[in-house]
Amino acid sequence: MSTALLYSFGGILLIGVALHRLVLTTDLLRRVVALNVFAAGIASLLIAAAYRGPEAAADPVPHAFVLTGIVVLVSTTAAALALIRRLDDLERSVDHDT
């Protein structure tokens, strides 16, 4: 079995683990982490697809995709976390009022 395929299966397993937890958890922070693991699995699939053996240079196009994806993901994660923090502040102030 080729190295690329082996790592692809690793990526698919990450996707499976992430989806499983994503559906079952109700905790917001854990949901964010699960989505990040999901994205890591997708990225691993792309990186594995780009690998063309130990001698040949790897395909740079998927590498560029993953670099872009990483930046996009950290942005979205930051937005989600800012929302969580804000929501937490609001709920806290409601707790204090009552």
Partner: peptide, 12 residues
């Protein structure tokens, strides 16, 4: 890095 993607590994 093992899959010859050092640029992406650095960013990750």
């Amino acid at each position: 890095v093992r899959l010859q993607a050092p640029d992406v590994a650095l960013a990750e």
